[in-house]
């Protein structure tokens, strides 16, 4: 898969239709930093689909594309990364004009900490144990962005998904029109399988950690490092609500808090932080699993946000990252709706 993508990137760069590409490259110590490449020779280091996710691709992209890029930028991303990029464009953190997103049939990613212990592990789409819990239940494993490299159903082909993708293929003189029926078959059967897994997982997660007691338990180990927030592509705020000065409580309030229940946990905003974060970002969550990878306390935070996200997106029939034209649910409204929530 890597070599097909690298060949494609090379063609694109040489053609001058694309002036730079964003792609993970092999770095020291089994790392795969995102690299912006404009020189074909630097593609030698490219690892378009690394076994693991160090930085969410949309986060890397957003670090320099808040204004429109000059010349076309071709970014190779996993489907969840491309979807996050679409969400970020709606949140005005990425200007997607002039950016072409190329995705692939994603094999999933190895849990970061496991990979750091054993860099020999490779993600295998058919062996769930090799990939992260959220990857195992991911139903959006293909066909995001402008183009997608199909690797199943007998294909080894970059397929256009949007006019921008088609235009790139045209300019590269790639005019194959393969029979995609077996590939579509593959995708829908895996999707159905994953949907079952995901429903089951969400059910058992909810059962295990439902309610106040369960939440207190599951977030017990939270050390307030905020890594989940920092690595999240959707959490783009420079200053999070939880860190604002006006949230500070006087010492007397802390003592009062402790007195009213006999004892109180200090660094108290744990649940507030997580629930507040979910209220803020769950509509745009793409279930990429980066938060869970980053958590030093092994809290299933990504699975929890993903579970909540399933609930909140259903209210608006919204699918994060699917359609760039579909407005963010909180940025729009209908006059007649949601009457069950008001009185």
């Amino acid at each position: 898969m890597n070599s097909i993508i690298v060949d494609f990137l090379e063609k694109a760069l040489v053609s001058d239709y694309v002036s730079s590409v964003l792609v993970p490259s092999g770095g020291p110590d089994n790392t795969f930093p995102w690299t912006l490449i404009s020189d074909v020779s630097a593609l030698a280091m490219a690892e378009p689909v690394p076994p693991v996710m160090y930085v969410q691709g949309a986060k890397a992209l957003a670090s320099f594309t808040q204004s429109m890029t000059e010349g076309k930028l071709l970014a190779v991303m996993r489907p969840c990364e491309a979807r996050a990029a679409v969400e970020l464009s709606k949140l005005e953190q990425i200007d997607l004009d002039n950016i072409i997103l190329l995705t692939m049939d994603c094999p999933g990613a190895v849990p970061l900490k496991e990979y750091r212990r054993d860099a020999g592990i490779q993600p295998d789409i058919s062996i769930p144990e090799t990939i992260r819990p959220l990857c195992r239940q991911c139903t959006e494993f293909t066909s995001a962005g402008d183009l997608c490299l199909a690797m199943h159903g007998g294909l080894r082909e970059v397929l256009p998904l949007t006019p921008a993708g088609q235009e790139l293929l045209d300019s590269l003189g790639m005019k194959a029109e393969p029979d995609t029926s077996a590939w579509i078959e593959w995708a829908s059967s895996l999707k159905a399988e994953r949907e079952a897994v995901s429903t089951e997982n969400r059910k058992s997660l909810k059962k295990a950690y439902s309610g106040l007691e369960g939440l207190v338990e599951v977030f017990s180990g939270c050390i307030s490092c905020r890594s989940c927030r920092t690595v999240c592509p959707i959490c783009y705020c420079r200053l999070c609500f939880i860190d604002m000065k006006d949230r500070r409580c006087p010492a007397s309030a802390h003592l009062e808090n402790s007195r009213s229940s006999g004892a109180a946990r200090v660094m108290s905003g744990t649940l507030l932080f997580h629930i507040g974060r979910m209220a803020h970002m769950s509509l745009s969550c793409v279930s990429c699993g980066m938060c869970e990878d980053a958590c030093p306390s092994d809290i299933p935070v990504g699975r929890l946000v993903s579970m909540v996200s399933a609930g909140t997106t259903a209210v608006f029939n919204y699918s994060a990252g699917s359609d760039p034209e579909d407005p963010l649910p909180l940025n729009t409204f209908r006059l007649e709706e949601l009457h069950e929530y008001e009185d």
Partner: peptide
């Protein structure tokens, strides 16, 4: 109208977490 949408989100979050 925006408040109503935000409230719906909040309700769903709280509900999904079993609160």
């Amino acid at each position: 109208y925006y408040a109503r949408r935000r409230f719906a989100v909040l309700k769903k979050v709280v509900e999904s977490l079993g609160l």
